[in-house]
């Protein structure tokens, strides 16, 4: 399937993938993430149950301390 991940087109094996699986696949190892799927915020407790499908627009933002 084809998705947009952080403004970049990506091809992922299979027809769907959970956010939790996507984070492992794409090696997002940091803790403090803001995740949006099709403009909807996905909370941490929903990473396992939120499913990404063909055509979805996914944003994974890694926030670091400092300011």
């Amino acid at each position: 399937m084809n998705i947009i991940l952080n403004n970049t087109p990506e091809t992922i094996d299979g027809k769907e993938i959970s956010i939790a699986q996507l984070l492992i696949l794409k090696n997002f190892i940091f803790k403090m993430l803001v995740i949006k799927v099709n403009e909807q915020i996905v909370k941490k407790q929903d990473y396992e149950t939120t499913i990404v499908k063909d055509g979805d627009n996914v944003v994974v933002l890694h926030l670091v301390s400092g300011g």
Partner: peptide, 16 residues
């Protein structure tokens, strides 16, 4: 304009 990452996350998620 916070310093801590968890506060940044909280504000961004709340506003969005």
């Amino acid at each position: 304009a916070f310093d801590l990452a968890e506060m940044k996350k909280m504000l961004i998620e709340t506003v969005l």
